[in-house]
Design a protein around this nucleic acid. Structure first.
Lengths: 214, 214
DNA sequence: CCCATTTCTTGACTTAAATCAAGTAATTTT
DNA sequence: AAAATTACTTGATTTAAGTCAAGAAATGGG
């Protein structure tokens, strides 16, 4: 498959409302299709990388490791997803790990290059600012949801989101169940039990990592 | 006390890194010191208000009401706080209520006025964009915290934050305990018990809505 | 293909926090 | 200031989800 820099960049939430003309200005400051084999670490604390990444092919998990060595999965990146937008705007300390779950190709933009571009392209800033507003709302809504939903509701909400995203009621989980559990803020045991319960109630059908919403 | 428009606006997180020259451009498009008596509703769904507000004097609570009529407190606004930044950038449906907890004065900026200003002030967009990056990080961190803390830890974290903010280990709760509980995502009963427990462990001292951190 | 490792499931048990209920304290209204 | 409403506390009970443990299934490497 051929790689289209414009298509790759414009898939990122913060850029996807941008006119093509703007995206084209981002192409020269971005790297393209770096390869990371399955299981390798794409980003980690102290690697000196300072910007955002786009997942062009493959998938990856974002996680942090807390004081007692426990891993918390903060998010998953699938083909077309992006992470680290914030790093374009502020000098943040990268505290999370990103690990390739499959053979993965990533593109990236470094903060310094981006900031220089912004200064000579005022329209870009204006467009981006409005995108950001929307993002803030999504994050806030998500946070409220998490606080007001129990384990089962969160699972169902996740499955519905995924079904909508994949455009089918046959869902292909890209995450190991233990990673999914961590992402949903529950234990693998609870996830296993709730899925079984949902199946018993004829709301889903499970076969391995494939789930059918009924 | 006299009212300083510049001081009022610059207290909002998204504007507080802005040079005074930029803030001054915001003054003409903002309303100032609207009065709301204690208990009155400052903003509510369907009121046609479409922008952000600054709390100049007094305090207020932000809450939503879900399907079964239950109230969830999403945040508190104290003197100097602001809310609704997102509304400046996107046409959002206002879904929350904001209610004055004391006699309150608010200033505000409407979306349309702000957008017009942005278009003729590119530097403002650039400055704001970088502020936003930082905000996103704070919100994300908070969300992680909430997911990994139990009731008592969240209470202690809240009290410590407040102590830091008020610059004293004698904390004046501006919220009713039931509202505080809702804000922390717990029940009033749990809050009551945990506070009692913390007092027993000599970590705090409670007298009404005044708490001393030890 | 087999052995080792990791992931997943299931059961028994524990625990944190919610709910229910009833009484006390604090506010607000008249 | 008394009555009425709302807020807070406390105890008893329930419940959702976590922990611990052990076996089954899946995955990966040699």
């Amino acid at each position: 498959m051929t790689h289209s820099p414009v298509a790759c960049i414009s898939k990122a939430t913060i850029f996807n409302n941008l006119p093509v003309k703007m995206i084209e200005k981002l192409v020269p400051i971005s790297t393209h299709q770096e390869y990371f084999p399955k299981g390798s670490i794409i980003r980690q604390p102290g690697d000196g990388k300072d910007g955002m990444i786009f997942l062009d092919q493959g998938s990856a998990k974002i996680y942090s490791i807390n004081e007692d060595g426990k891993e918390t999965v903060l998010g998953i990146l699938n083909k077309g997803d992006a992470d680290g937008q914030q790093n374009l705007f502020r000098d943040n300390i990268q505290e999370n790990f990103i690990e390739a779950l499959q053979d993965t190709y990533v593109c990236s933009i470094e903060r310094q290059d981006f900031q220089k571009l912004l200064k000579r392209t005022p329209d870009l800033a204006l467009n981006l600012l409005n995108s950001f507003g929307e993002q803030l709302v999504i994050i806030e809504t998500n946070s409220i949801r998490r606080n007001s939903m129990n384990a089962q509701e969160r699972i169902v909400a996740y499955l519905k989101d995924l079904s909508k995203k994949q455009g089918s009621n046959v869902i292909e989980l890209k995450l190991k169940k233990k990673d999914l559990a961590s992402y949903l803020g529950i234990t693998p045991e609870t996830l296993s039990r709730k899925l079984k319960k949902l199946q018993k109630e004829n709301r889903i059908k499970i076969s391995g990592r494939r789930i059918i919403l009924l």
